[in-house]
């Protein structure tokens, strides 16, 4: 699952995404790390455009919940987030 997660984070910088969806590598970069199962995101701001970078980070976290986890990791959401239909 972490491999998929890493791939998802990386894909958010892809040239194949439209501009409004992409994290522009000239302005910011986000990478993931995994230490004994504790996953973290690191944001690097490249041209002092902190507003852009922060906004993109917020969007990324939003997409992790609403796209990455929702689309393919139902079991994980039950185990980690205690998901059930009564608590969606």
């Amino acid at each position: 699952m972490y491999r998929e997660f890493k791939e998802f984070v990386k894909s958010r910088h892809s040239e194949s995404l439209p501009d409004h969806r992409r994290i522009d590598l000239k302005k910011a970069a986000v990478r993931s790390s995994n230490r004994s199962g504790n996953v973290a995101l690191t944001l690097t701001v490249k041209n002092s455009d902190y507003e852009y970078a922060t906004r993109k980070l917020i969007h990324l976290v939003h997409e992790i919940y609403l796209v990455f986890l929702q689309e393919g990791h139902y079991d994980y959401m039950i185990e980690v987030f205690n998901l059930d239909p009564d608590h969606l």
């Binding site: 929702q70 689309e71 393919g72 990791h73 139902y74 079991d75 969606l88």
Partner: peptide, 12 residues
């Protein structure tokens, strides 16, 4: 999904 992927995916 662990046994028979893709398993459940909540609708968008």
């Amino acid at each position: 999904g662990n046994v028979y992927p893709p398993g459940i995916a909540l609708p968008t």
